[in-house]
Design a protein around this nucleic acid. Sequence first.
DNA 1: CTGCGTGCAAATGGTTTGCACTACG
DNA 2: CGTAGTGCAAACCATTTGCACGCAG
Lengths: 148, 148
Amino acid sequence: MRNNYSFKMMITENFPEQLKQKGLKVTPQRLAIYEAVVKLKNHPTAEKIIEYIRVNHPNISVGTVYKVLDSLVENNLLKKVKSDKDIMRYDAVVIHHHHLYCSETDRIEDYKDEALDTLILEYFSKKKINNFKIQDITLQISGKFNNT
Amino acid sequence: MRNNYSFKMMITENFPEQLKQKGLKVTPQRLAIYEAVVKLKNHPTAEKIIEYIRVNHPNISVGTVYKVLDSLVENNLLKKVKSDKDIMRYDAVVIHHHHLYCSETDRIEDYKDEALDTLILEYFSKKKINNFKIQDITLQISGKFNNT
DNA sequence: CTGCGTGCAAATGGTTTGCACTACG
DNA sequence: CGTAGTGCAAACCATTTGCACGCAG
């Protein structure tokens, strides 16, 4: 977490072990679904995940996918991402980071910037908000990707 | 927009006139729905809005409420607010501002802070994001309200 | 045995859509 | 007339739920 360049690397580190630590059993369904979220770029919807795993696991049911996603989010192994649409999307990067949104293309990219975080934290260490205790600040940065 | 203390005041300014400017007809339904969003604190859901207007307008239908909300959002007279749940909520404050979230109570408060905006803008005027052109930055500030 | 995890299908619930009707220019 | 706006009810669709089965400890 100290180095920015590799903040996405930890997402695949020993997922089965993390399941065990949380008291969750290691099942083919959970492995497949987690792999789908990691491999699929652009913060997939449940639908995309189902589509992806169906190739190698045609028998995993829709209900199971939602149940697994919920339990992984609850155990902080995945994160839910709100998009402009009212469809939930999922993110395998669970450490603190921001998001770049393009409303035209529905593309969502992770954005980590510790200098920015520090700047904002410093600001709020001086300026308090009335009757509110801050726990977390996440930026939604909207704009356009340059043809990539 | 220059003075912070009154940033919520403009929301009620001559709504019928704004409708006309956008080429929308002034109807009792639109007035009632807009009034509901303004009067109801905490960024109401469609359900809360329906509940509110039902008292004085028992015959406005659910479909109409959704259609009116959509058209007002499209014409920038209201804004959609994403909450943790997958239910849409609406905000009568359409100028740029941030949100304070309390996940425990589902409370959402508007937060305007031009000094903070300036700070962040200055930061990004120096540091560019690769392949991305920023159009808007919105903060989601999560935390807890102090018993108010 | 005990129970977590799964598959399946039905149910749920917020939102949308189609269509006929109305009011107003 | 012509059309934007509305009411109503059915449809939609992402997600949830209930339940029976299966597998591992």
